[in-house]
Amino acid sequence: MRRSLLDILACPLCRGDLDVEVIEEDQEEIITGNLICKECGELYPIENGIPNMLPPELREKV
């Protein structure tokens, strides 16, 4: 995901702002990392450049 996406992203559960923790990044985008909600603390992983913004209980089902 591109960093600019952070301007519009919000926690799907509480709609809080998100912090980003970058593990791997290239010139264009974040490849691996985590998005962490500043309000509720929920963590959303970024893998292969794709953030998984599902609430934890839905992640296993899909």
């Binding site: 992203l9 799907p12 913004m53």
Partner: peptide, 12 residues
């Protein structure tokens, strides 16, 4: 693209 549920969109 993002993995997300249409009922809980991860946007402001």
């Amino acid at each position: 693209v993002l993995i997300a549920d249409g009922r809980l969109l991860p946007f402001r």
